[in-house]
């Protein structure tokens, strides 16, 4: 699939096809990570995180594609894996030539940091009650109509559904604020 088409699909929230196309790059990433001391699971983790980062970035309006998407993906993976090795304090991290320019590294670093921040919010949403989580996911990503959501979740009216959504958002916001405060006090 053409890169431009993939970007279009992601922009339209049609992730399924785009992701499947991007997944074709997985073997190369896995090979790289195996050579650099990781196993298949590491490769999966790194690759999936890179996909998330890439998808979000692609959606941002200021995103300009300077190279092939696969190159981007591969280089984010390299960066993530180097980062991970550093965390595991393997001695060989010094020898790990990421093959990235300093500018690229800095860019990836910024992206990865942002990802960690959003990761916290994601954790909060993930740990909400099952119903809340489902409502939020349906509202914000399913592209479903309000009426259908109400029917699917068994709410008596569209208004109840809407109210429920706001209540869940409120719960998530409060939890996130508490967590951030807790982190700060630590």
């Amino acid at each position: 699939m053409q890169d431009q088409r993939i970007i279009e699909l992601i922009g339209l929230n049609k992730h399924d096809q785009a992701l499947l196309a991007l997944y074709k790059n997985f073997p190369a990433v896995r090979k790289m990570i195996r050579l650099k001391g990781g196993n298949a699971q590491d490769a999966e983790d790194v690759f999936q995180e890179a996909l998330i980062i890439l998808c979000r970035k692609v959606k941002e309006t200021e995103f300009v594609l300077h190279a092939q998407l696969s190159t981007y993906l591969f280089s984010v993976c390299r960066f993530l894996w180097k980062d991970e090795l550093k965390k595991r304090k393997k001695q060989s991290v010094l020898d790990f030539e990421s093959g990235l320019s300093t500018m690229e590294e800095q860019q990836w670093e910024g992206w990865v940091e942002e990802e960690a921040r959003i990761g916290l919010a994601e954790k909060v949403v993930r740990e909400l009650g099952e119903r809340c989580r489902e409502v939020l996911l349906l509202f914000y990503n399913g592209g479903m109509k309000l009426k259908d959501i109400a029917a699917k979740m068994g709410y008596s009216s569209e208004n109840t559904a809407k109210n429920q959504k706001y209540k869940c958002l409120e719960a998530a916001k409060n939890k996130l604020r508490d967590m951030k405060q807790a982190i700060q006090t630590i």
């Binding site: 992730h15 996909l51 998330i52 998808c55 979000r56 959003i118 990761g119 916290l120 919010a121 994601e122 954790k123 909060v124 949403v125 993930r126 989580r133 939020l136 996911l137 914000y140 990503n141 998530a172 996130l176």
Partner: peptide
């Protein structure tokens, strides 16, 4: 953004 990520 968190919801988005989870979805993704």
């Amino acid at each position: 953004q968190g919801i988005n990520n989870l979805h993704l």
